[in-house]
Design a binder for these strands. Structure first.
Length: 477
RNA sequence: GCCUCUUUAGCUCAGCUGGUUAGAGCGCCGGACUGUUAAUCCGUAGGUCCUAGGUUCAAGUCCUAGAAGAGGCGCCA
């Protein structure tokens, strides 16, 4: 291929007077003269000025929205107002035509629903270009954060033979012929004939395996796809999503909370610095959207919201404190909650979390020390024998962004909990060995990556922040 | 899985208590235009009113069922 210059680079270095070749996709063609060209490297279009005397009528006709072109010419200071620089093209090659009668993207605003239906082309819009560039920067910032602090990136299995993770319904993985399933003598599926010789599933969490690595390498994290076969139909659940799960040895719940808070502040600070243009675009988009809403339903301006995360400490309260606040709150006393707050031990509902985060504290809230009855078997029992060392980070607009805990390192207590919660101890010996040999206090958390992208971009549907969303009834592409 | 709402031109939508030939903006197509910024101006074309059944003299409009989409709840990250 011939050399090309990416627009992002070109706008940084401002090589005025140079001859360059730009390759990208036409957004609009105005006045038979001005092409707004985008190559995805940056949200900004480059204006390509067409010299009509130099171009055939045929080529001119083929410069349509969506067409791929290569434009070569001199870069000059723009005479117009919308941009500082423009390319005066003396050569334009159409690499790929785009029929304007059938190309779904028009040079106008489209609804997110329409773009979801045309998911294969939505990358070519400003909004989705911005979202996926920000998604990249967030992923990079997460790796950088952990790497700079001596964490090792650990890959835990995607196909798992462990069925005791307890984090939700699982997708089965099998090569058995579904039309002719081998059966044992007592009529059960004969998994000994299956690929792995036993039932296997797609992972719902890498935590248990990460604990194995952490109790040797001290500080590790996973960042990979996870799968939940729940029939969840909401704006914040996916069947396939990416999760970040650090695990730290010789650490307690406070260390865990500090790590999570520092990480969120770091990665958000990172995108504020490195994805400024994209964030500004999304902020403006959100602002326009909010104009149609009544005053009391409007949310914080995006950039201020993100700046607030970086600059302010998160609120930290125990479940019991949260329970008291909620029980004595106005909406509870006035019967406004669908689920009244009465009995200690109840799980907090979305409406309760929203009240705490959006009305009471107006910033992220970390709730700790939940009743043992509503949390997982591996969470460390507190001295009160009633609560466990768990923590959830709740953020405005989304709810639970992070869920974590200090892990139960005491073998006898862990075994007792597993028995109480019907976890098959025999199948978990590999996990229990971390407590049998050289057990140590350790902690970790899980961060839903798409929920982070949702929060940072200000989008409202999680299906819009992952390139190829998977949810009940839908697995396109 | 449960609840609510939506479905009218390529897109975004209007269409009142059922009543002639279903409208607008944008886009597309044709024309004009060498400083435009979702360009502008002029002109044309474009509809299985989601599907099936029903009520009625008459259904885009009312009823029933289904499909698709959105939002809320639950499960959680």
């Amino acid at each position: 291929m011939n050399k090309k210059t990416r627009i992002s680079r070109l706008l940084k270095s401002t090589p005025e007077g140079q001859t360059v070749t730009i390759k990208g996709w036409v957004r609009t063609f105005r006045n038979n003269q001005f092409i707004a060209l985008n190559d995805g490297s940056i949200i900004t279009n480059l204006q390509v000025v067409v010299d009509r005397n130099n171009l055939s009528e045929d080529t001119l006709k083929r410069i349509t929205p969506g067409a791929a072109i290569a434009a070569t010419g001199q870069l000059i200071a723009s005479q117009g107002h919308g941009q500082t620089m423009e390319l005066v093209a003396d050569k334009i090659i159409i690499t790929g035509d785009s029929n304007p009668e059938t190309y779904p993207l028009q040079p106008k605003r489209h609804s997110l629903e329409f773009l979801r239906k045309n998911g294969h082309l939505r990358f070519r819009t400003n909004t989705f270009g911005a979202i996926f560039r920000i998604r990249h920067h967030l992923a990079y910032a997460i790796h950088k954060f952990f790497n700079d602090r001596g964490f090792y990136y650990m890959n835990t299995p995607i196909i798992t033979g462990s069925d005791a993770e307890g984090a939700g319904e699982m997708f089965a993985v099998t090569t058995l012929d579904m039309n002719n399933v081998p059966k044992t003598e007592d009529g059960q599926v004969d998994y000994s004939k299956d690929f792995f010789g036993k039932p296997t599933n797609l992972t719902v969490s890498g935590q248990l395996e990460a604990e194995l690595a952490a109790t040797a390498l001290s500080n590790v994290y996973t960042f990979g796809p996870t799968f939940r076969a729940e029939n969840s139909n909401t704006t914040r659940h996916l069947a396939e999503f990416w999760m970040v799960e650090p695990e730290i040895a010789f650490a307690d719940l406070n260390d865990d909370m500090d790590l999570a808070e520092n990480m969120l502040q770091y990665v958000i600070g990172y995108v504020l610095e490195h994805a400024k243009l994209d964030l500004e675009f999304l902020a403006k988009r959100l602002e326009n959207e909010e104009k149609n809403k009544p005053q009391n339903e409007r949310s914080f301006p995006l950039l201020e919201k993100l700046q607030g995360i970086v600059e302010n400490q998160f609120e930290r309260i125990t479940y019991t404190q949260a329970f008291d606040i909620l029980r004595n709150s106005k909406p509870n006393k006035k019967g406004k909650f669908k689920f009244p707050v009465k009995e200690w031990g109840m799980d907090l509902q979305s409406e309760h979390e929203r009240f705490l985060v959006e009305k009471k504290f107006k910033k992220p809230v970390i709730i700790t020390d939940y009743p043992k009855g509503i949390k997982a078997f591996y969470m460390r029992m507190n001295d009160d024998n009633n609560t466990v060392a768990a923590m959830d980070i709740l953020v405005p607009g989304i709810g639970e962004l992070v869920g974590g805990s200090q892990r139960e390192e005491r073998l006898d207590i862990l075994l007792k909990r597993m028995e109480e919660m019907n976890i098959p101890v025999e199948e978990m010996q590999w996990y229990l060995d971390t407590r049998v040999y050289g057990s140590c206090p350790h902690a970790g958390f899980g961060l839903g990556f798409e929920r982070l992208v949702l929060f940072v971009t200000g989008m409202t549907n999680i299906r819009d922040v992952i390139p190829f969303p998977r949810f009940p009834g839908s697995a396109e592409f």
